[in-house]
Amino acid sequence: MITVGGIGFLFEGITRQDAKATLSIEPKSVMVTNLTDTSFTFTWQTDEPATGTILVTSTGGKKYSSFDQRDITGKMGKYLTHSVTVRTLAPSTTYDVTVLSNGKKYPIDKKSFSITTLPTLASDAPLFDPAFGSIKTTGGLPAEGALIYISLEGSQTLSTLVGASGSWIIPLSLLRTQDGAAYITQQERINETLVVQLGSIESRVTSDTLNDSPIPDIILGETYDFRGRDAKKTTPATLAQKQVSPTIKPKQVVLGAISDKLTGGVAFTAPIQGATLSSTKPLITGIGIPGKTVTITIGITEPTIGSTIVGKDGVWRFTPK
């Protein structure tokens, strides 16, 4: 059993150095990120495109599966990068995890990963804006599917996938310390590190919390230092004022539009364009700045309009009535 000893932990030694083609779908650079009291994200890469699923077993023996975040349409795709998030877990509970790559179980020695969720915190979360930006390849194309990891000084590691337009966004409102025992303390400027990976190509970016909303455009494979640019100057007081200000115009999201593009600090994540809906009242979700109002318009000829508020976790949810 391989036990996670930290938040944003890299499982060393899972990849076997073997030239056989049958091992090209074996998970590499396995990471556990976005660890909270009720959820975590598993990320990895493969040499060849492969489907990705994880099997989770609770201490009580209950088993269930979680799929890549791009597979919410119900059809499993094959990717070089993989990101699977497990939700609705119990706090301070240990779970065993097995990765399925093209249906084959890993680690291949039949030992599983062991992950323990964090305890629930009673204190208020910090008022950080989400970090967001855009990443392109050297050819000027969106770096779709690239894995991006972000951490602040002394914090846990968070992650996401770069979307089809090259945009990405990571809420920082529930960011904890590296040991998970407390939320990160709000300061005017905190240095942060980003690592972007797509296959063998990697970018390393140094920035800070005054220059991450947005982070300037990134070309995959390049190294950057955006610290000290003072792209924005905010304090906890101005952040709080901004989040409750009645002068903020609601952001509109049209169902079926590009889902990963950030507009006014709000991004639409699900359902994705082309998804088959099993209900006339689907759950619509996205991420953004906590406290902001999101207005959703469904349909064109006879539109249904509703609104919701971005939660403290940086996630908004809406179901049509």
Results as ranks from 00 to 15, higher is better:
residue 2 I to P: 03
residue 3 T to D: 13
residue 4 V to D: 12
residue 5 G to Q: 10
residue 9 F to V: 15
residue 10 L to N: 14
residue 13 G to L: 08
residue 13 G to R: 04
residue 14 I to E: 13
residue 17 Q to M: 12
residue 23 L to C: 06
residue 26 E to V: 08
residue 30 V to C: 06
residue 31 M to A: 06
residue 32 V to Y: 00
residue 33 T to A: 07
residue 34 N to R: 03
residue 35 L to M: 12
residue 36 T to N: 10
residue 37 D to S: 15
residue 38 T to N: 14
residue 46 T to C: 11
residue 48 E to R: 11
residue 49 P to D: 11
residue 56 V to T: 15
residue 58 S to T: 14
residue 59 T to A: 14
residue 63 K to D: 15
residue 70 R to A: 11
residue 72 I to L: 12
residue 76 M to N: 12
residue 78 K to M: 13
residue 78 K to A: 13
residue 82 H to E: 15
residue 86 V to H: 07
residue 87 R to Y: 14
residue 88 T to C: 13
residue 91 P to Y: 05
residue 94 T to F: 01
residue 102 N to A: 11
residue 103 G to C: 09
residue 104 K to E: 15
residue 105 K to D: 15
residue 107 P to R: 01
residue 108 I to T: 14
residue 110 K to P: 07
residue 110 K to C: 09
residue 110 K to Q: 13
residue 123 S to W: 00
residue 130 P to M: 08
residue 133 G to I: 03
residue 134 S to W: 06
residue 136 K to F: 07
residue 137 T to V: 07
residue 138 T to P: 05
residue 141 L to Y: 06
residue 143 A to N: 04
residue 143 A to Y: 01
residue 145 G to L: 09
residue 152 L to Q: 03
residue 160 T to P: 09
residue 168 W to N: 06
residue 172 L to N: 02
residue 175 L to F: 01
residue 177 T to P: 01
residue 180 G to H: 02
residue 181 A to Q: 10
residue 182 A to R: 04
residue 185 T to A: 09
residue 189 R to N: 06
residue 190 I to K: 00
residue 191 N to A: 08
residue 193 T to M: 04
residue 194 L to A: 02
residue 197 Q to R: 11
residue 197 Q to D: 12
residue 198 L to W: 03
residue 200 S to P: 08
residue 203 S to L: 03
residue 206 T to K: 02
residue 209 T to P: 00
residue 210 L to F: 01
residue 214 P to M: 04
residue 216 P to E: 05
residue 219 I to Q: 04
residue 220 L to H: 00
residue 221 G to S: 05
residue 229 R to A: 12
residue 231 A to H: 04
residue 232 K to N: 12
residue 234 T to S: 09
residue 261 K to Q: 14
residue 262 L to P: 02
residue 270 A to S: 15
residue 277 L to F: 02
residue 281 K to P: 05
residue 282 P to K: 01
residue 282 P to G: 05
residue 285 T to A: 12
residue 288 G to P: 08
residue 289 I to R: 03
residue 295 T to K: 11
residue 296 I to Y: 00
residue 302 E to G: 08
residue 305 I to H: 02
residue 310 V to D: 09
residue 311 G to L: 13
residue 316 W to H: 08
residue 318 F to N: 07
residue 321 K to N: 15
